[in-house]
Amino acid sequence: MKASAGGYARASDLRHALDLLGQAGDAGRVLVGGQSLIAAMNMRLSTGDMLVDISRISGLAGVTQQDGRLRIGALTRHADLGGDPLVGRHAPLLAQAVGHIAHAAIRNRGTIGGALAHADPAAEFPACVLALDATMHLEGPDGARDVAVGDFFIDVFETAIAEGEILTAISLPVAEPAEVQILKEVARRSGDYALAGLCLVRRAAGVRLSALGVGSVPVLAQGAMAALDAGDIDAAVTALRAELDPQSDTQASGGYRKHIAGVLLRRIWDEIGGTA
């Protein structure tokens, strides 16, 4: 099919982008890497969009470290993120995720901001930032605001980003000396969206565990986290399976996905030495 866009404009800076979005009203659509949006438009799942291309805005890409936090610009491409030394040290979970996201061509174009704003529950980055307890930084016509990751993902393809707002960056605490971050998933083919996946972050304060591909949003598995903090893997697996209610589709049933989540948790647990 041929896409049916309403219009296209390239924003020169953030203010310009916000103005363009304001003018477009509810037809306004941020375009960055296009790796989700253009595919949707090409299937006419989205038509009439007034595209505001923010991909050339300077200052919204790249990774910096400041005041004990890592700040990742929304326009940072998957490929750049995967090779970034600061990410490698402080958010290795994200670097691991890049290896699971699609293929080189898509990683060269897709951005972390786009992936988070798109909010596909089977995508890796949403679950990663949930496990990393990130903060989302938004810019809107009325100024900037921060949203805690726990409040960000609302439903399939739906986030706390309001009409006219742009996700500019995310930030997360730098890694503790003994911090563990690990992502495991099962996909039919390399690069496919996972049938199920888990992200585990272990800090002094405790374990954070999130799951992808098993619900309408990435799931923070609090029951399993408590059991892991208590060092009880069997209870954690039971709790995890109880707190997930995955969909069935043509790739796998919900029951399979639930089973896999438990398998992955045991594998992660073995890999990190089986202690809380």
Binding site: R188, L195, A252, S253, G255, K258, H259
Partner: peptide, 15 residues
Amino acid sequence: FTPERILRALGRIED
């Protein structure tokens, strides 16, 4: 032979 069909043949999936 999907992963799910193999696990079901093995009786590894509870539901």
